[in-house]
Simulated scan of single mutants.
Amino acid sequence: MHILAATDFSTRSQRALRRAGLLARDSGADLTLVHVVDDDQPSDLVALESREAGRILGEQTGAIPELCGLRSRALVVEGDPFDGIVRAAASTGADLVVMGAHRKQLLRDILIGTTIERVIRTGPFPVLMVNREVDRPYRTAMAAIALSEPSVNAIRTSRVLGLLGGARLALVHAFQPLAKGQMFYAGLSQDTIDGHVADERLRATKELTAFLEVNGLDDRGQSMHIEEGAPFEVISKAVEQLNPDILIIGTHGRSGIAKALLGSVTEEVLRSLDVDILAVPPLR
């Protein structure tokens, strides 16, 4: 396995390097550290920054405890950050890209998307966004699961990558009883509405159980949490209550303007939740 860890030498990125080192040590993976130098500036300055970046990367491999003694190499590329990371991941045959949490730049984020979102949209690589301090392997994991192939692929990928290890996995599934609002406006009693919601929860539970069995994901060691509400609301509340070390989520493939501009549950999760997040793109 090969892990690519991207850094801009910020504190956020240092957490990503530490997590990547810990993962590489536990799995025996090869590790590449990459820094992207902006090439939209005079060539002399690009060359200077590239040399300095190479020096700093070399220092970090010896200074960060999680990187010491690992099979790792430093890579400096030129270009736009997201494009440089995607090219580096492709050239190294990366199985996983690890990045630090992004800076919040509201207008740019709305119109273009953060670097990490653009890497996820553009590349075929699973991306781990590290938000929290690194002090141990992952012990608890949560997967946001819908009845879809991306959810199945996300869980399978996390297992192949060895991210779960001995971690306890909780599956969180959102359901929305569509008739609830109509029943409320029709003046039906609260007991009747509650009964309908309970029936819908039972139906959702049965559907999820059957879905997991068909896809070979019915592991008795995992827990299931079926909650009423919109997907992001349910995921956010579950992260707050369960406090997992890592959240696993599958992304849906989009193209054209929809891919560039429209929001999604994954993007809302990436921008809002303070937890390490593994975003897995669909199979291609």
Results as ranks from 00 to 15, higher is better:
T114N: 04
L169G: 06
I257G: 01
P124D: 14
R71T: 10
A179P: 06
E213P: 05
E117C: 01
V76F: 00
Q105M: 07
R108D: 13
P282E: 15
V265M: 07
E233D: 14
L278C: 09
P231S: 02
D218W: 03
F232C: 03
S43T: 10
G195H: 07
L161Y: 03
A204S: 13
A198T: 10
A144R: 02
V46I: 15
V239Y: 10
M142E: 13
P231N: 02
S272Q: 09
P281I: 08
R284I: 12
T115F: 05
E240T: 06
L17R: 00
V269T: 11
A258M: 08
A258N: 08
S10C: 14
K259Y: 07
N243K: 09
G21P: 01
Q41C: 10
G62F: 03
E268N: 07
D83A: 12
L22D: 00
F175P: 13
G256Y: 00
F9G: 13
G195M: 10
A238Q: 05
N215K: 04
I145H: 08
A94W: 10
L17G: 03
G195T: 00
G250V: 02
T32S: 13
T157N: 10
F211V: 08
L171S: 11
V197Q: 08
A88C: 06
A5G: 08
